[in-house]
């Protein structure tokens, strides 16, 4: 299975950096996310997760987003739903959310994500 990598684009900071490593099972989304066609951008990462789950290997998902718009927040919910569903079926999944201590609003929102999806997220200050 191939890795999924979307490198940072300095002229387009509205796209996050994506590093999904099929070898280690470590998946990371970092940076900012406020592109215009949100679902179009995230369709490939969502599909990648489905393929990876079929391998039965452990997955660690690290969110390192420092800003995302409300449209992206719906997709984040979709990712968390997918991770939770896989875990409920016996999959080995850890979800970490790295947050900045100077952003209490982000922390509130991640807590709400946990309530909305029932997915346990480890909150890690960065």
């Amino acid at each position: 299975m191939e890795n999924l990598i979307v490198p940072p684009v300095p002229d387009a900071p509205y796209f996050p950096t994506i590093m999904f490593d099929a070898g280690t099972g470590i998946c990371e989304i970092s940076g900012e996310s406020y592109m215009e066609e949100t679902y179009l951008f995230y369709r490939a990462p969502l599909d990648w997760l489905d393929s990876y789950f079929a391998t039965g290997k452990k997955l660690v998902f690290n969110f390192k987003l420092i800003y995302f718009n409300t449209s992206t927040s719906r997709v984040v919910l979709g990712i968390l739903d997918k991770l939770k569903e896989h875990k409920d079926k016996g999959g080995n999944v850890d979800v970490n959310w790295y947050y900045r201590k100077d952003d209490p609003d982000m922390l509130d929102e991640v807590e709400d994500f946990m309530d909305e999806t029932g997915c346990n997220i480890n909150l890690i200050p960065m």
Binding site: E36, T70, S73, R74, L77, D105, D108, D112, D115
Partner: peptide
Amino acid sequence: RKLRSVKRLRQPLHDSAGHIGMIQIAL
């Protein structure tokens, strides 16, 4: 915050507009 959760859960995943922008601004 509860309203944001309710509305976000109702929103189809493929919808590019979040429709919770005003709620987010209020928070």
